[in-house]
Design a protein around this nucleic acid. Sequence first.
DNA 1: ATGCTGCGTGAGAGCGCTCTCACCGATCGC
DNA 2: GCGATCGGTGAGAGCGCTCTCACGCAGCAT
Lengths: 343, 343
Amino acid sequence: MTDASAQNRSAPTLEDIAARASVSRATASRVLRGATNVSASARAAVEAAALELSYTPNRAARSLATGRSDSVVFYVEETEDRLFSDPFFLGVLRATHAAVAEAGLQLVFTAASTAEDNQRFLDYASGRHVDGVLLLSLHGKDELPDQLESQGIPTVLSGRPLTEGSSLFYVDADNVGGARMATEHLLDSGRRTVATVTGPQDMCAGQDRLTGYASTLEDRGLPFRPELVAPGQFSIASGHDAMQRLLEVEPRIDAVFAASDHTAIGAIRAIESSGRRVFDDVAVIGFDDIRDAATMSPGLTTVRQPIAGIGRGMAELLLRRIADEDPPRATVLPVELIHRQTA
Amino acid sequence: MTDASAQNRSAPTLEDIAARASVSRATASRVLRGATNVSASARAAVEAAALELSYTPNRAARSLATGRSDSVVFYVEETEDRLFSDPFFLGVLRATHAAVAEAGLQLVFTAASTAEDNQRFLDYASGRHVDGVLLLSLHGKDELPDQLESQGIPTVLSGRPLTEGSSLFYVDADNVGGARMATEHLLDSGRRTVATVTGPQDMCAGQDRLTGYASTLEDRGLPFRPELVAPGQFSIASGHDAMQRLLEVEPRIDAVFAASDHTAIGAIRAIESSGRRVFDDVAVIGFDDIRDAATMSPGLTTVRQPIAGIGRGMAELLLRRIADEDPPRATVLPVELIHRQTA
DNA sequence: ATGCTGCGTGAGAGCGCTCTCACCGATCGC
DNA sequence: GCGATCGGTGAGAGCGCTCTCACGCAGCAT
């Protein structure tokens, strides 16, 4: 701090940079925004000045001038509790945060589960406070994404929208394919009575994973037996309860495809407390490949879904839309069967 | 939408509200900010207009005018991986997010682990882009909080700062007391050779939990045996390795106080793979009471630290500082021993 | 009546940036 | 040699809010 003269207190402004570099505010702004039509000498001078004063542009001022907010929101239609306990949301949040931050934007996140929350959020977003929205965990035929889009707010969903013929943008994993892989593997390894604990049927991931299970049976000429299908909610508790009921109704079940790893963990507990052995008596395959799947004992055989890829994909899709490009509407990411000890 | 006339496109501004309520911009602003000196009639008119137009003030414009940003940052000096996998950080993040949002501010979060990250963050924060900082997981005698404060940016730490006589603001759990409870319980239940796997010794939580262990031994007139103390890093892997080494050096260990639940989980795996039985041969107490502690089998006896309370406490402390109040510098929250099956 | 105090209000000047527009000199074609 | 072109630049008008200031109009004491 050699010259502790004027610029003390309050951060340096563009004006200060311009003055120090002996150019106008406009030119300084051009350099800092990376515009092309600036002479090399002016550019160098401005860059030096910015460095010396360790200048950071004022976000609010920039926002006000551009009309952009340089921030996107991560909106999960679940309770805050779910958001913070479900590895899927956390993984997607993490990946989007990284991708969005890299592009220089801010990521704010909200969890909300009531209709009022949605309305409040719609009002907020309509006020041009965000450049775009990442929407997760849509239930049923939710109108929020359409409303956002009709307000001109770019929106990207995780998971295919349930309404037919929708023109919304989304990133999804190959849920049908993954469920098929799991069911086929169970059948191929000689299992005869393959049950499934589904995910919520108001969500596309839940529907698609059931579809994959059912279509595999059909392709193999096997009957679809409703008593082998129990509804779950992607949670450990619901997996446990569903499995318990399945085993009561049909004790000869020798395999189960669980629609999520948490569901599988619950199912395993039910299997064990019914006196059966996992794998020896009942094979189990989950979906997700969360961290615990590898570290638990026995290791969970599961369909790995590229969680980080989904997050990154969503962020990139949204950023391209914000940049007014016209990317393809749908991205479907491949999944992979991970063989461990439960099937 | 009866009158689809003028105000289409672009969100309504204060100007629009003022016009509709037949008052000046200044008065409309006063009402919306909750200022007192406004007549009842003007207030009602403005409120009605705002409601009809579903007005939301423009954050950027407000920021620019006030100099405040209405946002605070949650800064964790750890890798992003740690932030997203450690239940402690997640729990604190969740609680602060809720408290901060309730006050109408935005929470942005960043994980950073290198010195450059810290410098970049300091530059960023110095540019008045945030009203305050929540700082977690300080290592050693980190200068970041002092630098932030000297820039006039209110900062609140989780955990007591390590530098003596520091005047920083912080919220902490009673780590010494918790470690004492754990060690005393082990001793009281007849254990003779009580080891400990510590947390990182460049962090106050790591130090304090070791202090509690050591001081309990001293109070009981027992020798402090360095070979019973193994350094860990609060992680499952480090807990496992540390426990393995402890058992090699002193096979007669019949109890261990682990400085975190993750450490305890790792220690339990090491105990089991050494052929010993948890509780019967070696009692284990953890620290944190993360969700898994209750659901794992056997249930982990542990010191519960009020994670949400820490988050809420930090947020409230910071908000009071931002509001220019002068709250007490330190908040120390009580902990509690939760008895389960491992000790 | 006259001067005070108030309170409620409106005018207007910014906050720090972006972006359009006009301008300048240098280069180009014919 | 002259207008046309073009890259580089600066002046200046906002973006939507807040906040200071001054003003009008009660109501009060004198």
